[in-house]
Simulated scan of single mutants.
Amino acid sequence: MKVFVTGTAGFIGYHLARRLLEDGHIVTGFDGVTDYYDVALKRARLAGLAQYAGFTAVEGRLEDADLLVRSLQQAEAEIVVHLAAQAGVRYSIEQPQSYISANLVGTANLLEAVRAHKPNHLLAASTSSVYGGNSKIPFSELDAADAPISLYAATKKSNEAMAHSYAHLFDIPTTMLRFFTVYGPWGRPDMALFKFVSAILEGRPIDVYGQGEMRRDFTYIDDLIEAIVRIMPLGPVQGVPVPGDSLSPVAPFRVVNLAGGHPELLMDFVHAIEAALGQTADRRFQPLQAGDPRETAADTALLQQLTGSLPRTPIEIGVAKFVTWYRQYYRV
């Protein structure tokens, strides 16, 4: 199968591309290799993918509409997985324009490219952040998600609306994937796990926000990739729902929560890091930051309905695997 993946120099895109290549698929990766975080880490991910004969890399920004169209046509992709984006809740407060450019303009360009070259299924990354100010726990795909509390979340909710309109207008089977706190080897340096491990190993204190009382539905990267791979052949068909479906009544379009379905206290996550490192952190408790929800928890009933039973890696094992990778990669 031929698959076009945006964001292959990124954390999730790298893991998905590698899994698909290992399964024998042909992958065209599209990535701008921006300097939002360490470019060397992104280059290392791409170097790993380049070892596979079935991988073709295209370096370009989502804002380059012509390059996107040409690349997608040349890839002859049957499946498109759109993972490239400007990520980060807190950074969206500091640099809002980069989110407008990459997440809104870039995704609009991707949708136009998909319109010109219709794949069998478009899958695109969304986020648990779209649930924003919702107080009902766990978050269900059937809940309204109309109260984003960060610009990042607002751009992702906009992406869902944009993709729905294209699914309706041009009959493009589309699935929006709402990711919940994904972590694991090759992760992003701006995420808590990466920052905590780095700080503890260097003898620096860690900032624990929300006084350590936040809960997150942590999702180990391998579990997430398994879910995406199982969903790839399941393009939505308008008028053919499954029980508890979020399928649109007017388009071949659905949203799906991708999560472990088992929220953990942030302090339990910190304890898992300390155990994996064999060191105790110097913790500085801080108030909840602007844009951060106090709790995320996913209703995973629809995910299970679509994919069956999925692996769920305990945080103790997932964190230990990250620490092993970190020590090897940085030689510490």
Rank of each mutant, 00 (worst) to 15 (best):
S98P: 05
T175F: 03
A154F: 00
R312G: 01
L288W: 01
A17M: 11
G133I: 02
R61W: 02
I100R: 03
V250W: 01
F11W: 04
G308W: 05
V332W: 11
R188C: 10
A290G: 04
M162H: 05
S165K: 09
L142K: 12
I172A: 03
L46S: 06
S101Y: 03
D190I: 12
V39Y: 00
A163E: 04
T34D: 15
E141A: 04
S92G: 06
V319K: 00
I315S: 00
S92H: 01
Q73C: 08
A192N: 02
A144M: 12
I149E: 03
D282I: 13
H117L: 11
A144C: 09
A251K: 01
Q238M: 15
A57Y: 05
T155E: 06
P311Q: 10
P236G: 05
A125D: 07
I172V: 14
L111W: 00
V250M: 05
L110G: 01
L201M: 15
L68R: 04
A84N: 05
L288S: 07
Q328I: 04
V182N: 05
P205R: 07
A102L: 09
E63I: 13
H168P: 00
P263V: 08
G210C: 09
A153T: 05
L234V: 00
A227G: 05
I225W: 02
T219I: 06
A44L: 01
I228F: 06
L68F: 08
S98L: 15
L302T: 03
A275N: 11
Q304K: 13
A57S: 11
P148Q: 08
S135C: 07
Q304E: 14
A297I: 07
N257W: 02
F170W: 13
S92C: 04
N134K: 14
A320C: 06
M267T: 15
A40E: 14
D292P: 00
L177F: 01
I228W: 03
L123D: 10
P311V: 04
Q289P: 01
P252N: 13
D146Q: 12
G7Y: 03
S135I: 10
S71Q: 03
E316R: 11
G244N: 06
T8A: 13
L265M: 10
L46P: 01
T155I: 06
E264T: 13
G184N: 10
Q328V: 08
R45E: 00
E63A: 13
E295S: 10
P243R: 11
A102W: 02
I172H: 00
S198F: 11
V256I: 15
Q279P: 01
A227W: 02
F194M: 12
M176H: 07
D143I: 08
H121M: 12
R43P: 00
P314V: 07
G32D: 13
M232Q: 05
L151D: 01
L49A: 02
N109L: 08
S158A: 15
D171R: 06
Q305C: 13
A272D: 03
P241G: 04
L110E: 00
E63L: 09
E160R: 07
S71I: 11
Y326R: 08
A320S: 14
Y99H: 14
A85S: 14
A50C: 06
T107D: 02
F196R: 04
D64H: 07
E112G: 00
A320L: 07
P249D: 12
F4E: 02
T313V: 09
R115W: 07
A124I: 12
G133A: 15
Q95T: 10
H164D: 09
I221V: 15
I149L: 13
L234D: 01
D66E: 15
M267L: 15
A227P: 01
G291Y: 03
I93T: 12
